Simulated assay, not measured.
Amino acid sequence: MLLVGIYTAISPWVIHFARTNPYLTANNLIMGLGVALLAIETPLAPQRMHRFAWTLVPLSLWLILSPAVVTASHGVSPGILWSNTGAGGAVCLLGVIAAKLAHDASG
């Protein structure tokens, strides 16, 4: 999950849309750093983080929908859609797994 968060944060520069879509760039940077932070914190304190890990599911849905919402007037390239959809799907799947593992570890 940490790698997906890092990829999401740097994806505007990997896919080369940082200059053309500044709002989506900021969105992906903030979302990626948030996912990476949750990925770091969840295994460190599973007793306190098992409920917080479930927030990754709505974050993943926003990651999938954000290219259409944030850049509605500019249009979205297929690369941006594939990148955010793939990262959002991975965050959703890994978030459910992390929440389950954190819940099992908490007790």
Results as ranks from 00 to 15, higher is better:
V4T: 08
E41A: 13
S11H: 15
P43V: 01
T85R: 10
T71R: 15
F17E: 03
S77T: 11
G75Q: 03
I30T: 08
W62Y: 13
F52E: 13
H103T: 12
L29T: 08
V69M: 15
T55K: 11
W13P: 03
M1V: 10
P58C: 12
A18C: 05
I15C: 10
Q47E: 15
W62K: 10
C92N: 06
I10K: 11
V35W: 05
S11P: 14
S60I: 00
I97T: 12
L29C: 11
L29S: 06
F17R: 04
G32V: 10
P67T: 03
V96N: 00
I97Q: 09
A26S: 10
Y7H: 13
V91Y: 02
T42G: 06
W62P: 05
V96W: 00
H103N: 13
H103W: 05
L33A: 12
G32Q: 11
S66C: 09
L44T: 06
R19G: 13
I80N: 05
V57F: 06
T20V: 06
N21M: 15
L33P: 02
P58K: 07
L3A: 14
R19M: 10
V57I: 11
A99R: 03
P67R: 02
W54R: 06
C92R: 02
A36C: 06
L37M: 14
N84E: 05
N28M: 07
G75R: 02
L65V: 14
G79H: 07
L38S: 00
V69T: 15
V57N: 04
L44I: 07
S66V: 04
S106T: 10
L94F: 11
A26L: 14
G34I: 01
A9W: 08
D104P: 00
T20F: 01
V76C: 09
D104H: 13
A53M: 01
